[in-house]
Amino acid sequence: MIRFQNVSKIYNSQSAALRDVSFSVDSGEFISLVGRSGAGKSTLLKLLIVEEKPSEGRVYFDKRDVHKMRPHEVPFLRRRIGAIFQDFKLLPQKTAYENIAFAMEVAGKPKTEIHHDVPLVLDLVGLKDKGNNFPRELSGGEKQRVAIARALVHRPDVIVADEPTGNLDPINTWDVIRLLIKINEMGTTVILATHDKEIINALSRRVVSLDKGAVIRDENPGRYILS
């Protein structure tokens, strides 16, 4: 469903963030991207959601080159790919409920649908009664679950998670990982970029290892090995 084909990304001429990366991800997979800091994990995910353009190569989603899409098509792609990040990217002046509703509003969804769907995803991430809390009133793990709920509200085909547990303690980390596994079991493809060795080893799913922008290992099930 997703295919990186000979992708290179050079931000500035000194060094390449990605070099000739090729691999594909099938529908329904749970795949982890691992690598040292600066290996290019975030860059890879940014290329998929068209936040950055590749210097070379192609990125396919559903057989379409996402970088050949016209500007007005990109928002629709982004609704099919839910993205979550280490820093949550919630709007601080909106409640949990409003943050999720906002994602539907900007997509022009009708009010009745918003009133129906937002409580459902809040329930799904286990935050049924925290809907009226502002982000500052939530723990890190709860914030991340709000972000996941927001990513899910468009019923995406894929969830990309860029170090979603980077700011969380072990208990919250596992809450989030379990939630991602649950989402994957419901049929959504998950791409998880992480540093966390224990998660990778416990997951025992496919692992793509990056080093200095190149794929050095792609195993299923894989383990966290860097060198």
């Binding site: 959601i49 500007p71 982004r78 990217k89 709007l91 906002f102 900007v106 997509a107 022009g108």
Partner: peptide, 16 residues
Amino acid sequence: EEISVMKLVGASNWFV
């Protein structure tokens, strides 16, 4: 910040 969130959740360009 709001703009980057809007883009993230797939707001149409003219909406932004």
